[in-house]
């Protein structure tokens, strides 16, 4: 092996070495999960606004539902925010009893039969139905 061949081989090995140290698919997936986690943390920031133990309990139930049940299924709710998010927000804003009744009412409305009643949320293309301000309802 002459000198130039040696140099070429060293350069070739160095190139592979560099490739081996670039990000692997697993690392990329880990990074993606981290990004998703941050996105989710931002979306569910309202959970931190719980005032009492009952609201905190519903927030925990919501997180458990999101982590273990909802995550196993495709997006099926026709609304934005989803029914579970709506329930927690309704309980936070309107108290446990009215918020819970509002959540049950939302569940019965969760179908695509009445598109005329809701605007479309631009980010998700779902029906937009936030928790109504109290002054519109009471």
């Amino acid at each position: 092996m002459n000198g130039s061949m040696k140099t070429f081989t060293i350069i070739l090995f160095l190139c592979f070495n560099a490739a081996a140290w670039s990000q692997t698919a697993e690392e990329l997936e880990l990074l993606k999960q981290h990004a998703r986690h941050e996105e989710r943390a931002e979306r569910f920031a309202f959970l931190k606004e719980s005032d009492n133990e009952l609201q905190q309990f519903t927030s925990v139930l919501f997180l458990a539902y999101k982590a273990f049940i909802s995550s196993q299924d495709a997006i099926s709710c026709v609304f934005y925010p989803s029914c579970s998010e709506y329930a927690v927000q309704a309980i936070q804003q309107q108290g446990f009893i009215i918020g819970l009744m509002n959540a049950f009412d939302r569940l019965t409305r969760c179908n695509a039969l009445s598109p005329e009643n809701y605007p479309i949320h631009p980010g998700t293309n779902l029906f937009y139905d936030p928790v109504e301000p109290m002054e519109h309802v009471h």
Partner: peptide, 20 residues
């Protein structure tokens, strides 16, 4: 019971939203 109460409240809310 939950759906019944939700519907009673939802009907009240629906009328208020309609008027609004």
């Amino acid at each position: 019971a939950g759906f019944y109460a939700g519907n009673v409240y939802g009907s009240y809310k629906s009328a208020r939203i309609y008027n609004n």
